[in-house]
Simulated scan of single mutants.
Amino acid sequence: MEHARLAGRGAVATGPRAAAGRLLLHPAAKPLLWLLCLLPLVWLVAGAALDRLGANPAEALIRSTGDWTLRMLCLTLAITPLRLTLALPALARFRRMLGLWTFAYAALHLLCYAWFDMGLDAGEIARDVAKRPFILVGMGGFALLLVLAATSFNRAIRWLGARRWQRLHRSVYLIAGLAVLHFFWMRAGKNDFAEVAVYAGVLVTLLLSRLWLRRGRGATA
């Protein structure tokens, strides 16, 4: 019977989960993910250069960078639930990279808005922020993302202390809420909420799953 138990453990260790873990730890995994995250930006730049972004390329760039910010945020928030549910601790090594890509696309979204809509006029941007609440909400979310990106490195963890760093980075929940609210208000003028509902549903599911998994781990600790 003891031999059977050991054999069973060996089968698990060499099964699909172990193979997935080895793939996630492969030296090429991070560069491959980095390239995959870069592809949308390459596609947008190529589309702009070749005039393939439609009748209003500036609006296409603003919306596309905003969409990719939300997608990267969803992927970042999915890491912890997937890591715990699938028992794949190696997934954690990709969380920082996805978080930084979320910030990168948010920064591009802000740059496209400031450049194409406002002509990089700081006064005009300030007036627009005061006039349109969804712009203010977006700016608030970006400011929080900037703080998280600036403190995403090991030196910041040592400087802040692990507990304070974790509390600070839980503001990703607030960022997710602000991102959905920004998107909702932006689409409210056209009464088009289909995509908003999809992103809101995904983000709420991911946030609730993180809280449920954390509560479950505390109950069994």
Score class of each variant (00 low, 15 high):
103 F>C: 06
6 L>G: 00
157 I>V: 15
2 E>V: 08
69 T>H: 06
203 L>T: 02
35 L>I: 12
173 Y>N: 08
125 I>S: 04
26 H>R: 08
214 R>N: 11
71 R>I: 06
210 R>C: 05
6 L>I: 14
44 L>R: 00
39 L>A: 14
151 T>M: 09
140 G>M: 05
58 A>C: 05
53 L>F: 11
56 N>D: 15
111 L>I: 12
45 V>Y: 03
59 E>M: 12
138 G>P: 07
8 G>A: 14
167 R>M: 12
191 N>M: 13
66 G>Y: 05
76 T>V: 07
221 A>N: 11
95 R>L: 10
202 V>N: 01
81 P>V: 02
200 A>H: 04
51 D>I: 00
125 I>R: 03
4 A>H: 08
57 P>N: 12
108 L>I: 08
182 H>M: 06
134 F>S: 00
1 M>P: 09
194 A>N: 06
134 F>L: 02
179 A>K: 00
212 W>C: 05
116 F>Y: 15
169 H>Y: 05
149 A>N: 05
80 T>D: 04
53 L>T: 07
179 A>L: 14
52 R>S: 09
30 K>M: 15
183 F>T: 00
19 A>F: 07
153 F>S: 04
125 I>T: 10
168 L>Q: 13
73 L>T: 04
187 R>L: 00
142 F>N: 01
197 A>N: 04
187 R>M: 06
38 L>Y: 03
171 S>L: 15
122 A>I: 13
23 L>F: 07
23 L>Q: 05
32 L>I: 15
9 R>L: 15
72 M>G: 02
192 D>L: 09
51 D>S: 14
211 L>D: 07
190 K>R: 13
186 M>L: 13
139 M>W: 12
55 A>K: 08
84 L>A: 10
9 R>A: 12
200 A>Y: 06
57 P>G: 10
61 L>P: 06
183 F>H: 13
87 A>G: 04
76 T>L: 13
86 L>D: 12
64 S>L: 09
169 H>D: 11
150 A>S: 13
132 R>L: 09
171 S>E: 00
105 Y>E: 05
64 S>F: 02
121 D>E: 09
141 G>N: 07
4 A>V: 10
216 G>I: 04
220 T>K: 12
18 A>C: 09
16 P>F: 09
177 G>I: 03
105 Y>G: 02
44 L>Q: 09
12 V>Q: 14
88 L>K: 03
206 L>R: 01
23 L>Y: 01
161 G>P: 10
94 F>R: 03
202 V>Y: 01
188 A>Y: 11
4 A>W: 03
107 A>W: 11
126 A>Q: 11
47 G>E: 08
44 L>E: 06
216 G>M: 10
104 A>N: 07
161 G>W: 07
53 L>D: 06
99 G>V: 08
134 F>Q: 04
104 A>C: 11
110 L>G: 01
40 P>H: 03
207 L>P: 00
65 T>L: 07
126 A>E: 08
131 K>V: 00
148 L>Q: 12
133 P>N: 09
215 R>E: 09
145 L>H: 02
96 R>I: 11
85 T>F: 10
153 F>G: 10
34 W>T: 14
39 L>F: 10
219 A>L: 14
112 C>K: 00
33 L>H: 02
82 L>E: 06
